[in-house]
Simulated scan of single mutants.
Amino acid sequence: MTPDVREAMTALLALPSPTPDDVDWAGFEHFYGKADDVPALLRGLPDPDPEAAARSLATLGNRVCHQGGSSAPAALAVPFLIRAAADPGVHGRENLLLLAAQAVRSDRTGQALRSDLLRAADDGDSFGDPSPEAARAAVLAGVPALLPLLGDAAPGIRSAAAYALATVSPAGSPEAAAALRGRLAAEADPVVRICLVLAVAQLALDHGDAAEVVAWAGDLCGGEVHPLDVRFAAGLAWLCVTPAAPPEPLLRLLLAGAGEAAAWMRLVPWMSQQLDHGVGAWLVALLGDTHGFPLRPDPVGWPGRRRGARWPAGALRR
């Protein structure tokens, strides 16, 4: 009988300094069979040879999170992935964080729905698999190591840290959300700012605070007070945290900004392979039939808009 990964995770996190040897990996399976090969792969992650470290990570990722799906070994690897990512001397730290976050997620890359983009796995889409729950517990335990990475010198690590923090369980949500918002105020990189906005929105959506983040996203979108990357991300966040029909100014913002946003969005972890046909085509798929606005570029711009102007009160909140 396969052990309960949640119990295994509780025991692992209770240890003061766990090692891969503290897990009965042979009791679990990944996508290629018994997980008794995982300890060696985890030990290879901090290899000083960047190529060797990359091989260990690629093999581990393929076995425990194959084709968008996760597994119990993926969850049990999360504490070690976060620990390695927090070490400045380790190679591939960004990808370590992305794999840790993937352990909590399910594959929605083929759906491209508003309701799915900012959600981690839940009981409905993980078919009762307790692995995402166990992985969330590991991310929560790793919050003290993840928060400093929001200020890392490498933008990719800051983005990946936001992506990982977006999956934290409700117990860590307020601390993570406060850190993400605080970093947004100081962040200069447009890709990282997009990730911070989406991470705040995902935490709110997952933990029942959608109404508050709808208002927050609406404030970020309004007028031209904030840079385009922040407004574009806030527009996406608004779409994903409410089923309400998007107002025309929001659609115009997304469509007018799609061209400039294309380079940014390809570096945003939430997007995965969804931009194969461009940001415009992705937006059409994301919006589906939830609007009556003609999806075509508007060369005229926003009639009547002026720099610093705000949308009418409540325009994004109905």
Rank of each mutant, 00 (worst) to 15 (best):
P174S: 11
L118A: 08
R158C: 04
A134H: 03
A211K: 15
A171W: 06
V197E: 07
L146S: 07
D219M: 03
G223C: 11
P144Y: 08
G151V: 13
A145Q: 01
L220A: 01
F232R: 11
R181N: 06
A210K: 08
I194D: 07
A199M: 00
W216F: 10
A141L: 12
V168K: 08
L196Y: 06
F127E: 13
G222E: 15
T167P: 01
D209R: 08
G208E: 10
A176H: 02
P190I: 07
S173G: 15
A201W: 10
E133T: 13
P130C: 04
D129S: 09
L196D: 11
V191H: 10
R193T: 02
P132N: 04
A177S: 11
T167D: 02
P144F: 09
P155D: 00
A154F: 04
V197L: 05
L196K: 12
A215E: 15
A178V: 05
V191I: 11
V214W: 13
R158W: 08
L184T: 04
L147F: 02
G182Q: 04
T167L: 03
A177D: 13
G223T: 01
V214D: 12
A141D: 00
A154D: 10
I157R: 15
G182V: 03
A120H: 05
A171T: 08
V192R: 14
D219R: 14
R183V: 12
A177Q: 09
A164Q: 11
W216M: 13
A217D: 12
A137E: 14
A204P: 10
D206W: 03
P130A: 05
P144R: 13
D122M: 11
V192K: 15
C195Y: 00
L184D: 15
A179Q: 06
G156T: 02
P155V: 06
G223W: 00
D125C: 07
S169C: 09
E212C: 01
D229W: 04
L180E: 14
A188Q: 14
A162P: 14
A215M: 03
A161W: 01
Y163T: 13
L165Y: 12
A201T: 14
T167M: 05
S169V: 03
G156Y: 04
L228E: 15
H207Y: 11
E187H: 08
L117C: 09
L196T: 04
V168D: 01
E212D: 15
H207V: 12
E224N: 01
L184Y: 12
G223P: 12
L198T: 05
G208S: 00
V192G: 09
L147E: 06
G222I: 06
G151N: 11
V214H: 11
G128C: 02
D123W: 07
L220I: 06
T167R: 13
L205C: 08
D122L: 05
A176R: 05
A154N: 10
L165N: 02
D125K: 02
C221E: 05
A120P: 07
G151M: 02
A138N: 13
L140E: 00
A145V: 03
A135H: 08
A215C: 06
I157S: 14
A138F: 01
P130S: 06
R119H: 09
P170N: 12
A176I: 07
A135I: 03
A134V: 09
V191G: 14
P132K: 05
L196A: 06
D206M: 09
L146W: 08
C195T: 00
D122W: 11
